[in-house]
Design a protein around this nucleic acid. Sequence first.
DNA 1: CGTAAAATTGATATTTCTCAATGAGAGTGG
DNA 2: CCACTCTCATTGAGAAATATCAATTTTACG
Lengths: 237, 237
Amino acid sequence: MKSSLPAGQLEELLCIDCAVRRSGICAALDPDELQELDRLGRHVHFQSRATVFAQEELATSFYNLIEGVLRLYKLLPDGRRQIVGFALPGDFLGMAVSARHGFSADAIGPVVVCQFARASFSQFIADKPHLLRRINAFAARELNLAQEHMVLLGRRTAEERVASFLIGWRDRLARLKGPAQTVALPMSRQDIADFLGLTIETVSRTFTRLERDEVIEIMPGRITFLKAARAEALAAV
Amino acid sequence: MKSSLPAGQLEELLCIDCAVRRSGICAALDPDELQELDRLGRHVHFQSRATVFAQEELATSFYNLIEGVLRLYKLLPDGRRQIVGFALPGDFLGMAVSARHGFSADAIGPVVVCQFARASFSQFIADKPHLLRRINAFAARELNLAQEHMVLLGRRTAEERVASFLIGWRDRLARLKGPAQTVALPMSRQDIADFLGLTIETVSRTFTRLERDEVIEIMPGRITFLKAARAEALAAV
DNA sequence: CGTAAAATTGATATTTCTCAATGAGAGTGG
DNA sequence: CCACTCTCATTGAGAAATATCAATTTTACG
């Protein structure tokens, strides 16, 4: 955490000290490789609502999310929005299928990312099978999440969607910060609606219903599970 | 296509002669590696409706789809089904996130797959960066498709879903067999409904409406585009 | 042909959306 | 410190899209 770098570069910590060193893709690297990586990446801060990259923009970088939350979304030409996921520290972004990004990413609250130029990072990973395998595992996990979400969007009721979302979010935060009954929800109701394929009104009504049934308690920016088992049952069915 | 192998092994063609040699992940391999791979994989035939692997089953193999169509789906405990995709020749399956399959795969019509034992294939790819990169690219493409599908499921109307599906399916078949206005639909209306997050009745009514509007012509097991541009517009919005 | 499965069509029900109004929290300037 | 304002969230009433239930028709297959 301490740094001997001159002022103005304080955030340019070394990979070896990185907060997501053990959870991100970099966990696959040995000390020598981490040192090499130090020269390729740089930390970039974004304030709330800032855009890290946008759909259709040329994908010139890869990103490791170090701190904060990103919403990842696709827009239809008429403005309809589908949030395809929320990124948390340790997540790796930028695996575009073409030269352009398939979705936009913007900050929900302050964010720090580790940015890598596409060309040099591609070169860095090109002959590192252990790192390629880890990136593969990350992609497989993402794909699995996406498929779970398709089931939610295609076949679940509003109440099941909301319960699934809350339980899934709780579990992701638990992996980062340890388990807790109270769960921070930094994203807006509109974000939740656009993630779950619902309207903001339906999300709000469903929250209220879950609170009336004493499954959760609603507080500004967070909720508490009162009957976690009931919520889990709704999420699982 | 010709084979000098004894009867009973007629389908055990060599990788070098494989129908999906240029489109599948194996396109990343050189002749020596293909020869090595010959010893690891074996062709397996499935008849229509047969299950190649099932959700929650131990993932003991990887598969290259050689011929035919698979439906890939997840089931909820109460029987609701979401088809997460249709696999076509050249697709690679079996990248499970855990030890178990995240979805089921079964044959729509006769199917041939090239099956690899998980352990030996994992070993085969472990130190082949070019193959790992290709598998990565396949995963990224899958993820991209999944995200597109999330938009469809979360934010599109029934008519847009059906038009998107027909156009998307046409384009995938075009890549395999060349462009055509008439498109084979080997899957049932129920399969289409479970892919699009609709009921069979809504799919049927939407097909009928598209036919009444002279956008498509419906025939048993296939459709023809009469106004492809109109369908594309519905799919794109 | 005859039968079973798949697809279509119709009538009605239900969920979720849309439109509109109200309420609550956070930041700002007097 | 308090009104003011802006954004976000909640609530209500009615509309719309899609689901459900129930025939009927078409297609596939022995």
